[in-house]
Design a protein around this nucleic acid. Structure first.
Length: 271
DNA sequence: AGTGCGGCCTGTCCGC
DNA sequence: TGCGGACAGGCCGCAC
């Protein structure tokens, strides 16, 4: 489910209820997520003050003076703020209960998400250490894409989704940014000009920024921390539009599997 | 080192 | 109506 804009929407929605507040306790109903929730996380978090809620790639970082909790939403995870006494529903795997009486509640049917703890700087955690630049950060641009893609034979679609190259571009926004820059998703990454890479980097930024502004993309079941769906679905040019006419040229949108992921593109607009 | 794929899970939808 | 199979917004960890 959640890509970078959905994670950012979640962060913006939950941060006011956490930042600057003290954690009263942690309720864990299911430890078996992608990795087991560490046994010691309750004692680390209880009594700690959340100094900030940050995001790196698609990880949410709950920073405290003692260390940092690292959460990922996986494919089907979502977070919301509830009154702490609210009855849990199926797949509500953990709550971080604040002393204000509200709680951050994590729901994840597929359990691909995670909740981990690190005493150290999260930037050196094995899951984060090798991530590429943030796509909305200053280090991500056409020159970076062009120079790192030299001699790479993987398709540009897979390249964009490689988090060691750029962190947080998922399946929806990879298809969308390639459409916007007119690049065919099967093109080899190393065979794209600097000029086209400049455009691609700009379109990645643009599509992510617009999606964040609209609260992300709700295809089925994504709701932000405020309970509202994302409205970017209406802006999608190719994703989930197989067989429908291209919104620019009318050509039917094609769907193909690239690197085991569904990919959508227009043969009229993308070369 | 770069690339390709299996696997982790549940829910939903589609064809028979 | 039931059942099997494919598929879903992520991504690690392994084999080659």
């Amino acid at each position: 489910m959640p890509e970078l804009p959905e994670v950012e929407t979640t962060r913006l929605g939950i941060s006011p209820s956490l930042s600057g507040h003290s954690i009263a306790g942690v309720v864990i109903r299911e430890r078996r997520l992608r990795w087991p929730i560490p046994e010691h996380i309750e004692e680390r978090l209880t009594g700690a003050v959340v100094s900030s809620v940050e995001r790196r790639a698609k990880y949410l970082l709950f920073r405290t003076a003692r260390g940092t909790a690292m959460a990922h939403l996986g494919m089907s995870g979502s977070m919301r703020i509830v009154a702490s006494e609210t009855d849990p529903t199926p797949h509500d795997h953990y709550d971080i209960v604040m002393d204000s009486g509200t709680a951050l509640r994590f729901n994840d049917p597929r359990r691909f998400g995670c909740l981990l703890w690190t005493d150290d700087n999260p930037a050196i955690h094995p899951l984060l250490a090798r991530l590429g630049p943030e796509p909305l950060g200053a280090d991500f641009n056409g020159e970076y894409l062009y120079s790192t893609a030299k001699n790479r034979r993987v398709t540009i679609k897979q390249y964009l989704m490689n988090s060691n190259i750029v962190a947080g571009v998922g399946n929806i926004y990879a298809s969308e940014s390639l459409f916007r820059s007119g690049i065919h998703p099967l093109r080899a990454a190393g065979r794209i000009s600097q000029k086209r890479m400049n455009d691609l980097a700009q379109q990645v930024r643009a599509v992510l920024t617009e999606a964040i502004r609209l609260g992300g993309t709700t295809l089925r079941d994504f709701y932000g921390g405020d309970g509202k769906p994302g409205y970017f679905k209406a802006e999608l040019m190719v994703y989930d539009r197989a067989g429908m006419p291209c919104r620019l040229c009318g050509e039917p949108i094609r769907q193909a599997v690239i690197g085991q992921r569904s990919t959508y593109y227009c043969v009229g607009c993308q070369r």
